[in-house]
Design a protein around this nucleic acid. Structure first.
Lengths: 135, 135
DNA sequence: CTGGGTGCAAAGTATTTGCATGAAC
DNA sequence: GTTCATGCAAATACTTTGCACCCAG
């Protein structure tokens, strides 16, 4: 179990027990929706408020401690900020996996062919994960 | 001005004046949010209800007449269904442009290296559009 | 201490639903 | 005529805000 106290502080966030627990869940699950996060947090802090979840998620997003991933035909999930990467989203079980894909050649082509200045890429590949293909 | 009557019917949607107007706005604007669509529709049908917008957008999505595009840090926009393509999203003016990028090589690599079965790609490149770079 | 965080309740925004009327086919 | 769409109002869902109290630094 990683100690996120200092990492939170580096992002200008006080290290409260609730925030440490959120960070820990994000670390363990990788990707998590607001709804699931709330359910997990209630187990640890029975009187936690959904407002606390929302306030923290929003602050963490503003301070780039976490990132939001918007999934087609599904709810957004959140993850700890890491190096840029893409995602595989299962349409059946809604699991989300990280995947590293080099998109530089694509960025180069667009930069040469248009005047649009790309600052970030957001690629979600939807489909069926290995587990769900078995069922 | 394209006549969408038959196209709507092919998607099992009755061709009402409201639906024809929605199709026409999507065609003209390319990409449009719920909010903007409602504002445009009120000009044509002063007593139109937001519920009608939502019901129609949802039906059109279910029948694949339109597609939803989720934009990071912004609202979703909708477009008429076309051949698969990607999007450029301006972080400043929130304009969305279509762009055709061949992602087959990426799909091939993932298909070979993992057991995930990709059924669709969703790539949004965020940045600053040409117009906003001038300002 | 002091600033910021938490939980609760209330407010605000977004989206969906039920139903009577009306239009498409 | 029958089926389905519309508009309205109400209901539900989602997210934010205000405030009193409390904790991290």
């Amino acid at each position: 179990m990683i100690n996120y106290t200092n990492i939170l502080r580096e992002h200008n966030l006080k290290a409260t027990p609730q925030r440490l627990a959120i960070a820990d869940e994000l670390y363990k699950k990788g990707h998590i929706s607001i709804e699931s996060l709330y359910e997990l947090m209630v187990n640890k802090f029975s009187s936690i408020s959904l407002a606390t979840i929302y306030k923290n998620i929003n602050l963490m997003l503003e301070n780039s401690f976490i990132q939001e991933i918007k999934i087609p035909y599904s709810k957004s999930v959140y993850e700890l900020t890491q190096a840029p990467h893409s995602h595989l989203a299962c349409e059946k079980c809604f699991a989300v996996e990280d995947i590293t894909i080099d998109l530089n050649s694509i960025i180069d082509i667009i930069t040469k062919e248009s005047s649009f200045k790309i600052t970030s890429t957001n690629l979600v590949l939807s489909g069926i994960c290995e587990n769900c293909q078995l069922g």
